[in-house]
Nucleic acid binder design. Structure first.
Length: 403
RNA sequence: GUGGGAUUAGCUCAGUUGGUUAGAGCACUGGUUUGUGGUGCCGGGGGUCGCGGGUUCGAAUCCCGUAUCCCACCCCA
């Protein structure tokens, strides 16, 4: 038997219904905020991700589905959504056009990782990207939107925010931190030694307790923000407070993708295991320029749909549509015709097999139909159809032509 | 990539120190005189015990390999 690849899942009902419901809800809310749908290719040139996500990241370093295609192009399956949107934005020359551009997207992403709960090799994200607004007010708006989506789905969460600084203050801070790490080289764990070389900021969220004790003494990013970054962060906090959004400042919140600067945020859930981040995002003011576009401030986020699925509180399913059956084979043409008429406006389930009265009612109940319609010998002779409302328990026999 | 735990019917799981035709509940399906469902009663189908080797007179059970899932690390959505 051929089976699906490791870490790649099929999605049937009811998960597929939860998925649809999520997309529908998130889409509705994104549109209310003025975002428009955008669809990007799943396959892109490898260089795009190397330059945007960053070669120091695990995603690019060891998790990409990368290969050479028949035209000898070095390509890979997208590991995340932002790079493609930014590439398209520049290619369409929207950077030169100026103004504000807001997009939402959703679809599969691919990362070659060891699967576990909440971590798949093919997974789905819903994301939004906003271009052209430098103000932190947009960051706050995005967080409000995320709160609206999660609230609409009945999902509980904790919001963590941080500022990663910008090109003025981040390099200075990174140097200070590296000096600190150099001075304590013998005390840090192997992982942190590796991080020091590849992405030093990452040592801050090391889970090793002796490292954590040491880093309590380390220079703090929060205290090293330049004036602009600090002002923005203070404004973000007060905007969230004005909107009655609870948050926690987590100075150890570090995004794994190189392109983030200033605002970084993450929504986490304690109900889904170790892979607890359900949404994450932040500002990436330098990325458009970095990908050869005209400098354009931008901010965005992505949600991991599979991680949300089991948390979604679905609206109650109500009885819906018609179940139509006949008690003898002569009635089959009649119910087929009746179904054709009724399907113009309602969901219709037709039972092809002749059954007795009781079994038809059972069948109607099983498919959760609102109405059970039956044509027996009597109805067939009279040109009528018997209908019962299974919810109100009311029944009637009407002329088949008025059905 | 590292470490650990699982894998028996469509699903959730039993299966005694290796010993005849591997079980249960739910689900599915048929019947219960042609007339009232979701909640009665009776019956039926469905398993190369993840896959491949090995030990044995005999393997779901013991050994080795492998695949997948789960948990943690790592990383991130």
């Amino acid at each position: 038997m051929i089976q699906s690849l490791r870490g790649m899942n099929d999605m049937f009902s009811p998960d597929a219904e939860r998925y649809e419901y999520f997309i529908e809800t998130a889409t509705t809310i994104a549109k209310r905020y003025g975002f428009t749908f955008f669809e990007a290719p799943i396959l892109e040139e490898t260089a795009l991700f190397k330059r945007s996500v960053g070669e120091s990241s695990d995603i690019v370093g060891k998790e990409m589905y990368q290969f050479i295609d028949k035209g000898e192009n070095d390509v890979c399956l997208r590991p995340e959504g932002t790079a493609g949107v930014v590439r398209a934005f520049i290619q369409k020359k929207m950077d030169k056009q100026g103004g504000i551009h807001r997009f939402f997207y959703h679809g599969p992403m691919f990362r070659y990782e060891r699967p576990q709960k909440g971590r798949l090799r093919q997974f789905h994200q819903f994301g939004i990207e906003s271009f052209g607004v430098a103000s932190v007010v947009e960051d706050a708006t995005l967080i409000m939107m995320l709160v609206d989506i999660l609230d609409a789905l009945g999902i509980g969460y904790k919001l963590e925010i941080n500022s990663l600084g910008d090109q003025n203050c981040m390099p200075d801070y990174r140097n200070k931190l590296v000096s600190f790490l150099d001075a304590h080289e013998s005390e840090i764990c192997e992982d942190c030694k590796r991080r020091k070389a590849s992405n030093p900021i990452r040592v801050l969220d090391c889970k090793n307790s002796s490292c954590q004790a040491l880093y309590a003494e380390a220079p703090k990013l929060m205290q090293n923000l330049c004036e602009g970054c600090d002002t923005d962060f203070q404004q973000l906090k007060s905007l969230l407070e004005d909107s009655k959004i609870d948050y926690e400042v987590n100075t150890h919140l570090v995004r794994g993708l190189d392109y983030y600067s200033k605002t970084a945020f993450e929504f986490v859930s304690d109900e889904i295991g170790a892979q607890s981040a359900i949404a994450g995002g932040g500002r990436y003011d330098r990325l458009v320029e970095f990908l050869d576009g005209k400098a354009t401030p931008a901010v965005g986020f992505a949600m991991g749909i599979e991680r949300l699925l089991e948390l979604i509180k679905m609206p109650e399913t109500k009885r819906e549509g018609y179940y139509i059956g006949t008690m003898d084979d002569e009635g089959l043409p009649l119910i087929m015709k009746a179904a054709q008429v009724k399907r113009k406006s309602d969901k219709v389930t037709v039972e092809y097999k002749s059954k007795n009265f009781k079994n038809h009612l059972k069948g109607a109940d099983k498919v959760n139909a609102r109405f059970c319609a039956i044509i027996g010998e009597n109805e067939r002779n009279d040109g009528t159809i018997w209908i019962k409302d299974l919810e109100l328990k009311e029944e009637k026999t009407i002329d088949l032509n008025t059905f």
